[in-house]
């Protein structure tokens, strides 16, 4: 325990130097992200185009199914034909980013045990690589979504767009922090991977993404206030749909919590990192 505390302290006090060292690995990081993007569709005919086709179909289906076939209407937006689809995408696309980063981070050490055991490099690079890859994918999807908004003439003003992106970035930071904790613990307790999968599913339905908060009974709706992810999702929906900006209070809370979780993740990793290669 004492050694864990000491190694945490050493890691955190060396964080500045560590960042500089990480900077030296940016070529490698970029290489890993590129390799991943190309590798995912290796052996397929369309190759990289799949990165666009997938999200295109996904957005298309959401909007078609929910807005057209099911005729879902949003209160207050009964005249806008695509309102529900847009509402859905506003929070679902960031949520998918969150899920991917969390899910892949959790198993990243196990998946890349070969690298961790045989090459000397800051292992935290693996998390940056997971987040970077997911971010590239998410950026493509979100751009397509914005193009759609532009096409139907509902592109929000710049400030609202910036708010949407800021909330998504904070959500990504949150995912990285949680992912750091989960991936580190997962090396020692393989159950963590399963728990994360379950929690992500539960979290998806505890957050008003595919449904509207108004349909909940009021005690449940009050509980949503304590769900940080629900607050983020509502902020994103508000920005895209109503072009409303999240209050500075909410933004500050989200930012502080996201950074705190990231710091906790780093601390957890720092305390246990020396044991990681021994366990793989």
């Amino acid at each position: 325990m004492v050694s864990a505390v000491r190694s945490t302290w050493k890691f955190l006090s060396g964080l500045g130097g560590g960042l500089v060292k990480l900077l030296g690995y940016r070529d490698l990081l970029w290489q890993m992200i590129r390799t991943d993007l190309r590798g995912r569709y290796r052996g397929s005919l369309l190759g990289l185009s799949w990165t666009v086709v997938h999200p295109l179909v996904m957005i298309g289906i959401y909007i078609l199914v929910f807005s057209r076939l099911m005729g879902a209407r949003l209160a207050g937006h009964t005249d806008a034909p695509y309102a529900f689809g847009i509402y859905l995408c506003a929070a679902l696309l960031p949520w998918n980013l969150f899920t991917e980063v969390m899910g892949r981070s959790t198993t990243v050490f196990l998946e890349h045990a070969n690298l961790v055991k045989k090459m000397a490099f800051p292992n935290i690079l693996l998390h940056l690589y997971v987040a970077g890859t997911a971010a590239v994918h998410a950026a493509i999807v979100m751009c397509l979504f914005l193009l759609f908004l532009l096409a139907v003439g509902q592109l929000p003003p710049l400030a609202a767009l910036a708010a949407w992106i800021l909330l998504t970035v904070l959500q990504l930071v949150l995912a990285m922090g949680l992912g750091l904790v989960a991936s580190t613990l997962n090396v020692f307790f393989r159950d963590v991977g399963q728990i994360v999968t379950v929690l992500l599913q539960v979290g998806f339905w505890l957050t008003p993404i595919v449904y509207v908060a108004d349909i909940l009974p009021s005690p449940a709706r009050r509980m949503l206030r304590f769900n940080l992810l629900a607050r983020i999702a509502q902020g994103q929906q508000e920005a895209i749909l109503n072009h409303g900006l999240p209050g500075p209070g909410l933004t500050a809370i989200v930012a502080v919590l996201a950074l705190a979780v990231l710091a906790a993740g780093l601390a957890c990793y720092a305390a246990l990192r020396h044991g990681i290669p021994d366990e793989l």
Partner: peptide
Amino acid sequence: LLELGMGFQPEFSGRENIVFNGRF
């Protein structure tokens, strides 16, 4: 050169692995 393989990526070609490992 520790044991066998040194962090190679089995799905990638030899050439890509050279690039990858060179980076490492």
